[in-house]
Design a binder for these strands. Structure first.
Ligand SMILES: NC(=O)c1ccc[n+]([C@@H]2O[C@H](COP(=O)([O-])OP(=O)(O)OC[C@H]3O[C@@H](n4cnc5c(N)ncnc54)[C@H](O)[C@@H]3O)[C@@H](O)[C@H]2O)c1
Ligand SMILES: NC(=O)c1ccc[n+]([C@@H]2O[C@H](COP(=O)([O-])OP(=O)(O)OC[C@H]3O[C@@H](n4cnc5c(N)ncnc54)[C@H](O)[C@@H]3O)[C@@H](O)[C@H]2O)c1
Lengths: 230, 230
DNA sequence: AGGCGCTTGTGAAGAGGTGCACAAATCGCG
DNA sequence: CGCGATTTGTGCACCTCTTCACAAGCGCCT
């Protein structure tokens, strides 16, 4: 389930706050989901709660981390140390969540050799050697869209089977390789859609309801992220 | 639908490549989805295709942009010009997709006044004045998690009803305000989960199937992003 | 020990997304 | 003008996810 990481973050926050146990209700609030959904999710990985009491925070953290495969720190390779790549390389929030940025790569010779956060940028040609040496398990692509497919092919060639792609394009990869994409422009456009929808809903009933600007039908609002708060 | 932006990107790419029309099959391949799904999605916003021919690329772009509310360029305010904020502020890919970063804010006095990409970083206290002046329609939060809720409250207070949150925390906002979050650690953890699952699946049938490392049940693999390519 | 309140785990119903398969519609060509 | 090739639009069945509601279980208090 894609919500497990969310639960994990909420659990860590609760653990830091000194809580020993949580009820499904409390954890659900912290994670921003329905309590029934949370219980069903957790029940899928076993019965780790105590009726009448709740869930043991520490135990649940261990269990979720175990299921997510976070028991060992995973090595991440970042390809494309540009604008965005710099920010990612300089981010220290990954280490605390079970990941270690193990290598930085770029194709631009003028960037190779640069040191960021204690890591030296290597040329992308060194990927095969370094990937084995550092036992890379996840590749992150932060290159321009045109180079992304090529980089993905290189990553796949050295045995990487999980890729996080920031370039705004679809990657074609062999079966068995997982790709997740993060496209910030898409996120903004979805927000724009909601803005537009809200504006239409509030304007039309008040005004004469001009058919020109009206949305054709209801147009289902499904963007797989719960949005309405509180 | 959350897939419309994806279609829009594919359509722009096709338009740049000189295509006048596309079949649902072709566009579906470019966007990485099923052709039936694409047709159903497009049918929700009207009949803009011609049977036997396909869709007019230009017309479809106009229609989707109209539905997404991208006919006018939307002004975006970015709060938190740190590591990540710098990368976002320096990114020129938003302008081409209908967004204009109109203002940068930070609470750190030493950052205020800094110029990035032609924009001056302002103090967050100026938000109310600038928000009205620039008619901000979307707020982006790139501050540490502890400050995120406060910034969200400030954004809501000045009338922003769409927020993109990069801080790893859940935001509580009034009804009618849309929040989308981008948490890179969660993306990595989902990939880690898939890595773990793949490792278990390939190792267990070969080895003796030690019950210790086995996943409890099947554990549905649902992460609302189609992953398997080609 | 027994009852009581609280919480988990889960069955079942409802809702919604997905993909197949096909009728309807359009264009090009003979 | 008619026919076939092609492609859209959609009814339908299937399936997953969501949510409610409640029984079962646990701890605590008397
Ligand atoms: N910067 C942002 O805030 C932002 C936001 C959304 C999306 N993106 C996307 O992220 C990607 C990177 O953005 P950016 O702003 O960092 O771009 P950038 O141009 O600053 O950096 C790209 C880097 O990739 C390197 N590169 C190019 N081809 C390469 C190759 N074949 N192998 C290895 N490295 C290669 C370049 O040398 C450069 O250093 C782009 O696809 C962009 O669309 C960025
Ligand atoms: N850098 C990354 O690659 C990355 C990746 C994933 C998530 N994030 C998240 O994005 C957020 C920002 O990350 P970062 O690396 O840029 O951190 P950062 O510390 O470099 O930048 C944070 C900025 O926010 C400013 N700030 C703090 N409180 C503020 C307030 N109340 N109002 C306005 N500005 C305020 C700070 O002055 C600072 O400039 C964090 O929540 C982080 O967890 C960052």
């Amino acid at each position: 389930m894609a919500r497990l990481p969310e639960y994990l973050r909420a659990l860590h926050a609760l653990a830091d706050a000194g809580h020993e146990t949580v009820s499904s209700e409390g954890l659900a609030n912290s994670a921003g989901v329905n309590s029934a959904k949370l219980r069903k999710d957790l029940s899928h990985l076993g019965s780790y709660g105590t009726r009448g009491v709740g869930y043991d925070v520490g135990l649940l953290i261990d269990q979720i981390e175990s299921v997510l495969g976070l028991t060992q720190c995973r090595a991440v390779a970042l390809v494309g140390v540009g604008n965005l790549g710099h920010a990612l390389a300089g981010y220290d929030g990954f280490a605390s969540r079970g990941f270690r940025i193990a290598a930085l790569f770029d194709a631009d010779p003028s960037r190779v050799g640069e040191e960021i956060n204690g890591l030296v940028v290597r040329h992308v040609d060194e990927l095969p050697r370094v990937a084995v040496q550092e036992s890379i398990s996840i590749g992150v692509i932060a290159t321009p869209a045109l180079a992304a497919q090529g980089v993905a092919d290189q990553l796949v060639a050295v045995g990487v089977t999980s890729i996080l792609n920031f370039a705004p394009c679809v990657l074609s990869v062999p079966e068995g390789v997982d790709v997740r994409k993060v496209d910030l422009a898409i996120e903004l456009q979805i927000l724009s859609f909601h803005e537009h929808r809200k504006a239409s809903l509030t304007a039309l009933p008040a005004a004469g309801g001009s058919a020109l600007t009206a949305l054709p039908g209801g147009l289902a609002v499904t963007d797989n992220q719960e949005a309405i708060g509180t």
